[in-house]
Nucleic acid binder design. Structure first.
Ligand SMILES: [Mn+2]
Ligand SMILES: [Mn+2]
Ligand SMILES: [Zn+2]
Ligand SMILES: [Zn+2]
Lengths: 149, 149
DNA sequence: CTTGCGGTTTAGACTCATTCTAACTCTTTA
DNA sequence: TAAAGAGTTAGAATGAGTCTAAACCGCAAG
């Protein structure tokens, strides 16, 4: 079930959008709510299907547009694994992604600052990096659960 | 200019292929030679165009097939950055990739074992990973050069 | 030799995630 | 009320990658 955004989240969305010169629209609210409701790194199609339950007239093109807007505003990250469909993640903390080879599920892995630092330190002089993507592929046993909001 | 494989490299190719139950063919030799000749992480199309210079009848499908075979035999790695075309890398040492935002060039970054270890250590219990991909996005100034063979 | 077999190569058709286009809607401003 | 501009929409277009079926080739059996 997709609940609509609470005060706090709507404010965050509002602020990030206007900072990027964009407006808050009903479609954007729904798409953002979908991302927050279930943090399982859905594909565009998954977002589309979930969002349609609450806003049946919503189009796939709009879902693409909304997600692109969110990425542009820094509200959401794209997650790519090999050539699979792009997935979307509203977790703004620095983190890596772990994909379970069997289930296909994607899990967030917290990234301690000291690891970030050691990573940055391997760059030879002259290399300056803004973005570092880390992704694990393997098997994650059991104790899946806990969808925080 | 694409030179053909030397003794040593042909042996490596031969061995890796037969270990994977595959044969050494003229097409595979040419495609592999292209990868070794210029280690700039070419796309399939780039490999195709370079290989055609020395073997004009070669087909794009075969380039896809050869590269897939090499990946299967562990001779070559695929490199993906966001949704761009897949690139191919014959560097078998553990390394990360750095993509220059301006030029699009992809550079290898050596990965010291201690960094690999610190990365593996951030996985919570129950998570077991065989493959770790690390990619940097940013700007690399100058001192590009040195295409080792 | 000649034939048959299995793996490889080839051209071209196809797929499907993503991007593009152009019409439509909504809100704001004159 | 009209014009402007941002956002939304359906559907067409794109293009990297995959699939298919026919041709090819090296080799071993008859
Ligand atoms: Mn799992
Ligand atoms: Mn460079
Ligand atoms: Zn995430
Ligand atoms: Zn590489």
């Amino acid at each position: 079930m997709i609940q609509s955004l609470n005060e706090h989240n709507r404010e965050d969305l509002q602020e990030a959008l206007s900072k990027g010169g964009q407006k808050l629209t009903p479609q954007r609210e729904v798409v953002f709510a979908v991302l927050l409701a279930q943090r399982d790194h859905p594909t565009v199609d998954e977002v589309f299907n979930r969002a349609r339950e609450v806003m049946p007239g919503l189009s796939l093109a709009t879902v693409y547009n909304c997600l692109e807007t969110f990425v542009g505003c820094g509200l959401v990250r794209q997650v790519n694994h090999e050539r699979e469909s792009t997935r979307y993640c509203p977790n703004l903390a620095p983190h890596a992604h772990f994909r379970d080879k069997e289930t296909g599920q994607v899990h967030d892995i917290e990234l301690p600052p000291e690891v970030m630092k050691s990573l940055r330190s391997i760059l030879p002089p002259g290399f300056d990096s803004e973005v570092i993507e880390i992704s694990f592929l393997g098997r994650a046993k059991a104790n899946d659960s806990l969808n925080s909001n």
